[in-house]
Computed example of a mutant assay.
Amino acid sequence: MSMKNPPAKDQTFGGKTVLLGGDFRQILPVIPQGSRADTVLASISHSYLWNICHKFALKVNMQVNQDEKEFSEWLLKVGEGRLESVEEDEDDDYHEQLIILDNSLVQESKDDSLKQVVDAAYGDVNKIKASQSSYTDRTILTP
């Protein structure tokens, strides 16, 4: 950037606008052999750049249908660590992070589980119209 605009070398990101998005509770950096504190301290919200960023909060959880309010609230509780933990005799961080999962959210399968996920999201792929929206309306998102 500084070739065409010399002052850009002193600007954050070379003067370019950069959009960062996501749930920073779920998208954490990987610190090999690091503790939980190491991971948190390495996140973007602890960077020297964070104070010069403009922050916008999204108010509507678009990951779930709005008629699934109970599930949406459950997801927020998981993200904020407000669910009760599994009671274990172990005194370690691993067991502290286990949560009790409602059985209504679990679907056991004896068949190929990946095929079931794809079939649930896309149905019969031979019947999908070849338009961009037919694919973007049916997307499987994973962290």
Rank of each mutant, 00 (worst) to 15 (best):
S113Q: 09
K16T: 01
E84C: 06
I44W: 00
S134I: 03
L49I: 04
V117G: 10
G79W: 02
V117T: 09
D111L: 09
A37C: 06
G15W: 02
R36N: 12
D137I: 01
S113G: 04
I52P: 06
Q107H: 13
V60W: 01
K16R: 08
M1W: 01
V60A: 11
H54K: 07
V30M: 08
L101F: 09
N103G: 05
G21Q: 03
E80C: 08
F13L: 11
K55A: 06
S45R: 09
G123I: 07
H46E: 11
F71M: 03
S134D: 12
A120V: 01
L105M: 14
L20M: 05
R82D: 14
I52L: 15
I44V: 13
S104Q: 13
Q63C: 12
G15Y: 02
L114D: 09
L19Q: 04
L41H: 04
L75Q: 09
I27L: 14
D124M: 07
A121T: 15
L83Q: 07
A130I: 03
F71I: 00
H46K: 14
L83T: 02
R36F: 13
L75D: 08
S35D: 11
R138Q: 12
E84L: 09
L20V: 01
E80M: 11
G123V: 08
M1K: 09
W50C: 08
K16Y: 02
H95E: 10
D119G: 04
A121S: 14
G14M: 03
M1I: 06
S2T: 00
D92P: 00
H46C: 15
T139G: 06
P6D: 11
G123L: 10
I52S: 15
T17F: 12
Q26I: 04
I140D: 05
S72T: 03
L114Q: 07
N51F: 00
H46M: 10
K59T: 13
I140M: 08
S134F: 02
G22I: 02
A121M: 15
M3A: 14
G34Q: 09
N51S: 06
I128S: 07
N5W: 11
G22M: 07
P32R: 03
Q33I: 01
C53I: 04
L28T: 14
K55C: 08
K16C: 08
A57Q: 14
K4M: 10
L49H: 00
H54R: 04
N65P: 07
D91N: 14
L105H: 10
Q33S: 12
L105P: 03
V106K: 15
R36E: 15
A130H: 10
I52R: 09
R82G: 09
E88K: 05
